[in-house]
Write a protein that binds this DNA or RNA. Structure first.
Length: 699
DNA sequence: GAGCACTGC
């Protein structure tokens, strides 16, 4: 511990913190900032007047760092040193150093906007620029002015954007704390390879043949290229002359892998063996693999981004930033000097790569964040001029306002409603919160709670796709309920209710290819949501458990109605001549129901006229993922609302609009605005539909 | 008839 570089800077840090309310700390990997900053402040008396809170973007980090600090201070975890993450608050009255996820701190500030139990707040890993960290940065800027006398804020960041953070906080001081990394030699390619996959393969084999022992970490963009590279590497390594090189183990590592498979990466390899870990950017920050000496950096990452004018997400392979490139390289120098092979030329690094990754706040739908900020109800905060470190576009903010208006969270003047205030209390995206509120009125809260919880865990429910599980799923398809013709939300409800009836049998999940971990998470979320709803409704709540498991068509109707109200901002109408949908409320997009949906065309080959959707995402083409059929009678009032929408008023203006501001809205709901499908494509679709009907007829 | 990077309340 005494070797940690940060300890040599203790005096300097304390001196600077004494004189300034905000300090930026540039702490490189291995500097010990996450564990030591809080202890330094504790030693110097900052915990006498309040708690030192340290935020982390990830749960595991909050827990593991808290655990280490409690060991170093030789106290029991949960007493002087504790942590708070969702579902787990291990703090007590005695807690002086508290690690928490930034999401938890945001929740805390909802009920206590001044955060007055804290004497110091440390925003750790701020350079990762998570959505929550960015909101916190804005709130801290305001808070240090209000609590100038008794609050210190420390922000840890990366070398490349420390100055920017400092400027944001009125040029506050920046302290550099060196890390304890071993040197990493950077090797560039002469030119960009035609295929980064082939280039990675070649580089990996070169290392294997020429370089001394040490594991290789290879950064790819996703499951597909990981699987390809793994199989190619296996072939080529096997064909090398036996005994001429080390044995090789090749391991994929990505988020959709079963956790048991991920663990393999952390168990030490057998002797005289080189491991090749082929990973997504999960290995950049979330997971640290010991023993890595060589890093191969393709220079690419798969990134999700949101288009506020269409309401559509897309996943795109984009170039990484310099911060990311350095982070990747750093992975080679944790145990001894290493090498990083960048599969792009040096000039590309310097001239093409952005300094920092585009922050999440500029790549996401902001409905949830805007609702959160509105619900804080701070008179001195105006959303459209909120002081962000990097502002989202006004288009994105207006999109959020529009969405919130359509689900009654704000009124036509942009003011938060009672419904909106309640929605913000729920740890859910606004559409789902609104669904719960409506369900409480419709008498189907129990079912809605289940759907909300299932949707919160959806990606961790199904096992990662692979050839074998795919076959299995197809085979076992009949074992899962079918949504009774209404779609995916109803199916999710039915799945959980079936499980409930087995008294939460683990084998029931396994037999159906459902991840036990995911289903357990659903159960936890449902319980949490139930508790919050109970608190909000003060007992006037309809969480009928006696009727659970025996859903009637009437229950499904009520639930679909509640979903329609909640997802008024994610509504689509089927097109007249084919099974495509056009989105309503956004610049209209022609989209298809995702083939993985349980919602299928009826006997005439047609989908329902209206659906609400959980997500609109462009992969190979634009798809609606997770859809639920809704009735036209529920849709009509929403469309009226869309027509009345006045974005200028919503943004807090007078409502007397300049011409071009209106232009944005007038192209929203018009029936014949969609001409995106050219005639020849239209006829192709018509032909496809005829073929489909013909096939159906034969059966 | 296609496939989703990573987090979090």
């Amino acid at each position: 511990m005494a070797e940690l570089p940060i300890l040599q800077f203790e005096e300097k840090i304390i001196e600077t913190v004494e004189r300034n309310s905000v300090v930026v700390i540039i702490g490189e990997t291995g500097s010990g900032k996450s564990t030591q900053l809080s202890q330094i402040l504790h030693r110097r008396g900052y915990t006498n007047s309040g708690v030192v809170g340290v935020t982390q973007p990830r749960r595991v980090a909050a827990v593991s760092v808290a655990r280490r600090v409690s060991q170093e201070l030789n106290v029991r975890l949960g007493e002087e040193v504790g942590y708070a993450i969702r579902f787990e608050d291990r703090t007590s009255e005695r807690t002086r150093i508290k690690y928490l996820t930034d999401g938890v701190l945001l929740r805390e500030s909802l009920s206590n906007p001044e955060l007055d139990q804290y004497s110091v707040i440390i925003l750790d890993e701020a350079h990762e620029r998570s959505l929550n960290t960015d909101i916190l940065l804005g709130l801290m800027k305001r808070l240090v002015k209000r609590r100038a006398s008794n609050l210190k804020v420390l922000i840890t960041s990366a070398t490349l954007d420390g100055d920017k953070v400092s400027q944001f906080f009125s040029n506050c001081p920046v302290l550099n704390v060196p890390g304890k990394l071993y040197p990493v030699e950077i090797l560039y390619s002469n030119e960009r390879p035609k295929s980064y996959l082939e280039s990675s393969l070649k580089t990996a084999l070169d290392i294997h043949i020429k370089e001394p022992k040490g594991d290789v970490l290879i950064f790819m963009t996703g499951q597909d290229d990981i699987e390809k590279l793994v199989s190619k590497l296996e072939d080529r390594v096997r064909s090398l002359e036996e005994g001429s090189v080390l044995d090789a183990i090749i391991l994929p590592l990505h988020g959709s892998l079963q956790p048991e498979m991920q663990v393999r990466v952390f168990s030490p390899p057998p002797p005289n063996c080189r491991r090749f870990i082929v990973a997504t950017n999960i290995a950049e920050t979330s997971l640290t693999v010991d023993g890595v000496v060589y890093v191969i950096d393709s220079g690419y990452v798969k990134q999700r981004q949101y288009n506020p004018s269409t309401g559509m997400y897309s996943l795109e392979v984009v170039q990484i930033s310099k911060v990311q490139a350095n982070q990747r390289a750093g992975r080679a120098g944790r145990t001894r000097p290493g090498k990083c092979y960048r599969l792009y030329p040096s000039v590309a690094y310097h001239e093409e790569l952005l300094d920092a990754t585009i922050p999440e706040i500029q790549r996401s739908s902001l409905a949830g964040s805007v609702l959160y900020l509105k619900s804080l109800d701070l008179p001195d905060i105006d959303i459209l001029t909120f002081d962000f470190l990097d502002s989202p576009s006004s288009e994105s903010l207006q999109d959020a306002l529009k969405q919130l208006y359509l689900i009654d969270a704000i009124d036509e003047n942009g003011l938060i409603t009672r419904v909106g205030k309640t929605m913000a209390e729920l740890p859910l995206e606004p559409s789902l919160s609104r669904t719960l509120m409506e369900a409480n009125e419709c008498g189907c809260l129990s079912q809605a709670l289940t759907v909300a919880a299932m949707l919160s865990a959806e990606t961790t429910l199904l096992p990662g796709r692979s050839k074998s599980t795919e076959k299995k799923r197809k085979h076992d398809h009949l074992d899962l309920p079918d949504g009774s013709g209404w779609g995916d939300h109803i199916q999710l409800l039915q799945i959980y209710e079936c499980w409930h009836q087995t008294h939460y049998d683990i084998d029931w999940c396994k037999d159906r290819g459902l991840q036990v971990r995911g289903m357990t998470f659903v159960k936890d979320v449902r319980k949490q949501l139930c508790q919050i709803m109970q608190k909000i409704a003060k007992g006037s709540l309809d969480v009928q458990t006696s009727r659970r498991g025996k859903q009637t068509q009437q229950d499904y109707n009520n639930l679909r109605k509640a979903l329609c109200v909640g997802y008024a901002n994610q509504l689509a109408e089927r097109m007249v001549f084919h099974n495509g949908y056009r989105t309503l409320g956004f610049k209209p997009q022609v989209v298809q129901v995702h083939p993985s949906s349980v919602l299928k065309p009826d006997d005439e080959g047609k989908f329902p006229n209206y659906v609400v959707y959980q997500e609109l995402i462009a992969t190979s083409r634009p798809y609606l993922r997770t859809v639920c059929a809704v009735n036209v009678a529920w849709v009509t009032p929403i469309l009226n609302k869309v027509n009345k929408l006045n974005i200028n008023k919503l943004s807090g203006g007078s409502g007397h609009i300049e011409e071009h501001a209106e232009g944005n809205i007038s192209d929203l709901p018009k029936k014949d605005a969609v001409t995106a499908v050219p005639d020849d494509q239209e006829s192709k679709i018509q032909a496809a539909r005829e073929r489909f009907l013909a096939r159906k007829g034969k059966k």
